[in-house]
Write a protein that binds this DNA or RNA. Structure first.
Length: 242
RNA sequence: UGGGUCAUACGAAA
């Protein structure tokens, strides 16, 4: 199954889902066995394009074939349904599967609530994770932080950030980028600079996206000399602009 | 050693 899955993955990455499907069906003839992972790759590709009907059909097809389902597979579908706003479909699929929510699936719901502007509910979900002994990771925290930043609630965002630290979850480069952008929305250039500097203090390496975020802050504030200064920082750090 | 969740600008749309 592994060999042909690599080709299926490549087809999906290139957006050739028809070729990927064909290969999946041709696997037996080619001497390969379609397995859960091969199906998951294709199902996830359909989910990411919002084609949940095709994805769900494939799910039932593989179940008919006697293949087992696992959390990764269900997570793809749960995220797909969440991304198109069908949270109840995501929930019923989850119940049907018998899988339990893990940090990935929790995040699909948390993200969806944030997108709807219902960050309070996303926050409740984050707390539910802890109560259910599912350890929230930096992605779960970052998603809620971004939600609060989007609502201009920097105080809440920073509170979550502090809780994250207290629980020993390491922020990532994304966490910092989200906070930098949040401060920018608040017209708080100094806050953005403070976050950027703490990033370096914590031994994380800014990447192109991080630098672009900071450049965006400065250019929106008309501080182009500082924006050019970031360009110099990038050169010194060996990060090329895109 | 193959599969799932979070971030930037620009462009497009409003």
């Amino acid at each position: 199954g592994l060999t042909l899955s690599l080709f299926i993955r490549d087809f999906c990455a290139r957006g050739c889902l028809d070729s990927a499907s064909k290969l999946l069906y041709d696997m037996p003839a080619l001497g390969g066995k379609p397995d859960t992972v091969a199906f998951t790759i294709l199902i996830d590709a359909f989910c990411k394009r919002g084609c949940l009907k095709e994805a769900t059909l494939l799910l039932f097809k593989m179940i008919q074939m006697g293949l087992s389902i696992d959390s990764t597979l269900i997570s793809s579908l749960v995220d797909g349904y969440c991304k198109i706003g069908r949270l109840e479909a995501a929930m019923s699929l989850l119940n049907f599967s018998g899988c339990v929510l893990d940090s990935f699936m929790y995040n699909s719901f948390i993200f969806a609530f944030c997108q709807n502007g219902d960050v309070e509910r996303a926050h409740v979900l984050l707390n539910m994770m802890i109560e259910s002994d599912v350890v929230p990771d930096s992605i779960n925290y970052t998603t809620v932080i971004k939600g609060y930043c989007g609502l201009y609630r920097m105080n809440h965002a920073l509170k979550i950030f502090a809780q994250m630290h207290k629980r020993g979850i390491e922020p990532t480069i994304v966490t910092y980028a989200v906070l930098i952008e949040g401060h920018c929305k608040h017209d708080d250039v100094q806050g953005a600079e403070f976050v950027f500097n703490s990033l370096e203090r914590d031994g994380l390496h800014a990447d192109v996206a991080t630098y672009n975020t900071l450049i965006n802050v400065y250019s929106k504030k008309g501080q182009m000399h500082k924006a050019y200064g970031v360009l110099d920082m990038m050169k010194k750090a060996g990060v090329s602009p895109d």
